[in-house]
């Protein structure tokens, strides 16, 4: 392995891990195109390395997120049940629905979520849901100030329905569920942005196992590519988690909204592509 190639792969993986951990996404949005374009990796091997790296992102970031109570494990488990069912339903429906129509609808949904994330603030959302009875309560210590933030999670049914939808859309279009679940938790369930990111991060590692093991067993994982990727992501994700814990919620919201808008753009292009 040449040192320059090793350095490039590790740098890509560090960035992908930090980015994924910071926003509660897998990091595949960076890893797959970068490995293909910068390293000339075949698509299958890039995807396989990325799938394994999603687990690395989730596990490395979750050490700090879970320890510091940013991750709402109960909420994550509840949402994961409906998302998993939605994914199975989406896989069954994939051949019977118009890919373009779903992509167009999804792009609209993402733009709407991005605009809401940019316009609303945590404090406003908290006031809006204060009158509702929470089905879960949690708290975390906000860094760097060290203040304890308490929150209540509301609208269980809406969350389960949203998780189901997220799973279906993700299965049909191949986009990450974190893109749907983070805005869902923040905008509709009263979950603070940092908790939503940490909880999404926790969930993606569990579900990514379902993808990674078949890739691994079928021989698509190239160890010379996946090992440095996973190593870089493990290190980058811990850095990204620390940054997310200390950064302002507004910055995370704006960055996430940009990712939503970018994804909406790619979905819109897909819906009109010949």
């Amino acid at each position: 392995m040449s040192p320059s190639d090793l350095g490039v792969i590790l740098a890509i993986a560090l960035a992908a891990g930090a980015f994924g951990a910071m926003l509660g996404l897998g990091g595949g949005i960076i890893l797959v195109p970068a490995l293909i374009l910068l390293q000339g990796a075949p698509r299958t091997e890039a995807v396989a390395a990325s799938v394994v790296s999603v687990i690395a992102t989730s596990s490395a970031a979750a050490i700090a997120y879970v320890r510091d109570h940013y991750t709402d494990i109960r909420l994550g488990l509840i949402l994961e049940t409906s998302t998993a069912v939605g994914a199975v339903a989406g896989a069954l429906l994939a051949g019977h629905l118009s890919d373009r129509l779903v992509a167009a609808l999804f792009a609209t949904l993402l733009v709407s979520a991005a605009v809401s994330l940019l316009r609303r603030r945590d404090e406003e959302a908290a006031v809006a849901i204060a009158s509702e009875t929470p089905f879960l309560e949690g708290s975390y210590t906000a860094l760097p100030a060290g203040e304890t933030v308490r929150y209540g999670v509301v609208r269980l049914r809406e969350g389960l329905a949203g998780g189901l939808l997220a799973g279906m859309v993700s299965a049909i279009l191949g986009v990450g569920g974190g893109l749907v679940k983070v805005p869902l938790m923040v905008l509709r369930m009263g979950v603070p942005m940092r908790v939503a990111i940490a909880t999404s991060n926790f969930m993606i590692g569990v579900t990514a196992v379902a993808t990674a093991v078949p890739y691994y067993a079928a021989g698509y994982v190239n160890p010379y590519l996946a090992a440095p990727c996973a190593l870089g992501v493990l290190i980058g994700a811990r850095t990204g988690a620390r940054f997310a814990q200390r950064s302002r919620s507004l910055l995370l919201r704006r960055t996430f909204a940009c990712v939503l808008l970018y994804t909406a753009y790619t979905m819109a292009r897909r819906s009109v592509a010949p």
């Binding site: 996404l25 897998g26 595949g28 949005i29 797959v32 195109p33 698509r43 299958t44 995807v47 990325s50 799938v51 999603v54 998302t83 994914a87 199975v88 989406g90 896989a91 069954l92 994939a94 051949g95 890919d99 799973g167 993700s170 299965a171 049909i172 279009l173 191949g174 986009v175 990450g176 569920g177 974190g178 993606i204 579900t207 990514a208 196992v209 379902a210 993808t211 990674a212 078949p214 994804t263 790619t266 897909r270």
Partner: peptide, 24 residues
Amino acid sequence: ANGAYASMMHSSRLQFSQTSIRSV
């Protein structure tokens, strides 16, 4: 495999255009 692949894409949280397992 294509059906499973669509499901896997959900799990893997990747974003790229859908590719047929057969062609891969």
